[in-house]
Nucleic acid binder design. Structure first.
Length: 480
RNA sequence: GGCGGGGUAGCCAAGUGGUAAGGCAGGGGACUGCAAAUCCCCCAUUCACGGGUUCGAUUCCCGUCCCCGCCUCCA
C-alpha cells in the first residue's frame, strides 16, 4: 500500500513517485502579501500541511517551500493609499500571514523565499528564454512567446487557438500575440523597480515561482501545490517558462485544493465576502477549524457556515472527551496497541487514497467508538480493557495531532492548566454540592452545578463521586 | 461559448459493477435524584432526471436539467 495522489496534469490519481526514493520536495504558491489571510487561504494551509505531515509520518524526508509574493500591483496600490513604502506593506502582511498560519497549527515552511530576493534568478531565466527566442523585449517589457511552447495549455487543458479573448488584453499594443504574458514589466513612476538588461522594472507574477522553485528544489521536483484557481494562468505559465527554457519536466505531481465558499460564491477578496482567518481561528479554535477543513476531500468545494463549524466542534469535543476519559480509566497501565492497529490501518488506507481526510476522520470515529465501548470495563479496573483503551487513546492523539494537526493534546493541556487554577474553588463548591446531595437538597446541588457549567466546568456524577473538568474549547458563538 | 469539478438521507460527507462508511441533528431505551458523559436500538429498498450496456449500475456509456470554479487579479 502506498500513497496515491490526484495529479491535475494527468487528471487522474497516480502513485506518488518522488524523484528520489524516500524524499519529497514540495513547493506551494504562497500569498501575495497585500492584506490579511482569509478563511480560503487557510484551506491551502491545511491541505498542504496535511500533505506534508502525512508524508513525514510515512517516513519521507520532506522539504517544504512556500514563497511570498512581496512585489505586486496590489501591494503598490495599498502602499500608495496608506502613503507608506510598499516594502512596509509586504513586511506587515508577511508577519500577519505567518502568525495566522501558526495559529492554525501549520508547520512553518523549511524555506520561505521572497520574490524580491530572487531578482537575479528571475532575470537569468528570462534571459535564457530570450536567447532561445521564446521571449522578447519591447520597450522595457519582456513577454513570453506562448506559441513558441507547443505544450502550452497542457495543465489546464486549453487549446491555444480557443483562447483568443480579444477584449481586455493588457498591453495589446506591444504584444505579438494577445496570449503572450509579461515576465518583466517596465518601471512606472513612483513604483519600486530593479535594474535589468531590459531597463528598470519589476518581475511579473509567474516568473517568480518558476525561478524560486527551481532554485530551491531543483529540476523536476515532486509536488507543486496551490489553489485550483491558480491552474490557469499561473501554473500553466510556470510550466511554460521552466520547460521552454530547460526542457524536461518542471514538476512531477500537481496538487490543487478546492475553493472555500460563502453561500454559493467563492470566498475571494475581489468579491469581498472574506472572513478573517485569524478571527475564525480565534473564535472556533485550531482543532475545530482544522476538522472543518478536513470534512471534505481537498479538491471539492467547502462551504463556510456556522452549522458546519459547530459539527466540527462537536467532533473535536468527542475526541478530547474520549482521550480524557481513557487516560483517567487507564491510569498508568501500559498501552496495548493490538486493538488500535486495525484503526491505524483504516486511517492509513484512507490517507493513502489521495489524502481522503473525511474517510480518515471516520476511521478515528470508529476508533473512538471502539474505545468508548471498552471504557466501562476499563473504569472498573479490567486490566485488559485498560491497556486497550490506553492504546486507542495514544493512537488517536498520535494520528490526530501528528498527522491531522487537530491539537488534542494541546487542548487537553490548556484545559488542565485552567483546571489547576480553579481547582481549590471548584473543589470546595463540589464539597458543598456533595453535602447538599446527601441531604437530597437537589435545588442547591443543581444550582452549584449550573454555576460551574456556566463557568466552563463540566461536572459528571459517578458511582465514586463527582468528576469534573474544564471544557477544552471556548464555546462557539451562536448567532441564532 | 471553451475547459474542469460536482449533484448520495433533515444537514455535512465517504464509497463501490453485486443491492449505500462516518459524523451532526433527531427519536426510543439503559445509566442518573435530574443531568452530563457513555452504551444499545431506530433514522436513504435508495444515490438529480431520462435512456443504454450488463445476469446485475448509485458506481460504466449517451443525453437532459441544475450548481460551482477557471477562461482578468485571486488560495
Amino acid at each position: 500500500m502506498s500513497l496515491v495522489l490526484y495529479d491535475t496534469l494527468r487528471r487522474d490519481k497516480v502513485p506518488f513517485s518522488p524523484r528520489t526514493e524516500g524524499v519529497a520536495a514540495i513547493y506551494v504558491c504562497g500569498p501575495t502579501v497585500q492584506s490579511e489571510a482569509h478563511v480560503g487561504h487557510g484551506r491551502l494551509g491545511v491541505v498542504t500541511d496535511l500533505l506534508r505531515r502525512y508524508l513525514a509520518y510515512r517516513g519521507y524526508d520532506v522539504t517544504f517551500v512556500q514563497n511570498v509574493t512581496d512585489i505586486d500591483d496590489k501591494i503598490i496600490l495599498r502602499a500608495r493609499r496608506e502613503q507608506v513604502d510598499p516594502a512596509e506593506i509586504a513586511t506587515r502582511y508577511t508577519r500577519a500571514w505567518n502568525r495566522t498560519m501558526e495559529a492554525l497549527g501549520i508547520l512553518p515552511p523549511d524555506i520561505q523565499p521572497f520574490a524580491t530576493g530572487h531578482l537575479l534568478e528571475m532575470q537569468q531565466l528570462i534571459q535564457e528564454l530570450i536567447d532561445q527566442d521564446k521571449a522578447y523585449a519591447v520597450d522595457g517589457d519582456v513577454f513570453f512567446r506562448v506559441r513558441s511552447f507547443p505544450d502550452y495549455g497542457k495543465l489546464s487543458r486549453r487549446q491555444v487557438d480557443d483562447m483568443q479573448q480579444g477584449e481586455d488584453v493588457v498591453d495589446a499594443d506591444r504584444k505579438e500575440d494577445p496570449l503572450d504574458f509579461a515576465m518583466w514589466k517596465t518601471a512606472k513612476p513612483d513604483e519600486p523597480s530593479w535594474p535589468s538588461p531590459w531597463g528598470d522594472g519589476r518581475p511579473g507574477w509567474h516568473i517568480e515561482c518558476s525561478a524560486m522553485a527551481a532554485k530551491h528544489l531543483g529540476e523536476g521536483f515532486d509536488i507543486h501545490c496551490g489553489g485550483l484557481d491558480l491552474v490557469f494562468p499561473h501554473h500553466e505559465n510556470e510550466i511554460a517558462q521552466h520547460e521552454a527554457a530547460h526542457g524536461g519536466t518542471f514538476v512531477r505531481h500537481w496538487v490543487h485544493n478546492g475553493m472555500v465558499r460563502m453561500g454559493d460564491d467563492k470566498m475571494s477578496k475581489s468579491i469581498g465576502n472574506v472572513v478573517s482567518l485569524e478571527e475564525a481561528v480565534g473564535l472556533w479554535g485550531v482543532g475545530p477549524m482544522r476538522l472543518w477543513y478536513l470534512s471534505a476531500q481537498h479538491r471539492t468545494p467547502l462551504t463556510f457556515e456556522t452549522e458546519r463549524l459547530r459539527d466540527a466542534h462537536s467532533v473535536h469535543q468527542r475526541f478530547t472527551t474520549f482521550v480524557r476519559s481513557a487516560r483517567a480509566a487507564a491510569g498508568e497501565t501500559e498501552p496495548d496497541a493490538t486493538v488500535a492497529q486495525t484503526h491505524r490501518d483504516a486511517f492509513i488506507a484512507a490517507m493513502d487514497d489521495d489524502l481522503n481526510a473525511p474517510a480518515a476522520v471516520a476511521a478515528l470515529h470508529e476508533l473512538v467508538s471502539d474505545g468508548n465501548d471498552r471504557l466501562g470495563r476499563a473504569s472498573s479496573g479490567d486490566a485488559t480493557a485498560q491497556a486497550e483503551v490506553a492504546g486507542l487513546a495514544a493512537l488517536l492523539v498520535e494520528l490526530g495531532d501528528e498527522v491531522l494537526g487537530i491539537g488534542l493534546d494541546a487542548a487537553l493541556a490548556d484545559a488542565a492548566a485552567l483546571e489547576q487554577r480553579v481547582a481549590p474553588v471548584v473543589q470546595s463548591l463540589l464539597e458543598s454540592r456533595a453535602k447538599a446531595r446527601a441531604d437530597r437538597d437537589f435545588a442547591t446541588a443543581d444550582a452549584i452545578r449550573d454555576q460551574l457549567t456556566a463557568a466552563g466546568i463540566v461536572v459528571e456524577d459517578g458511582p465514586s463521586g463527582a468528576r469534573w473538568y474544564a471544557t477544552v474549547q471556548a464555546p462557539p458563538a451562536l448567532d441564532d
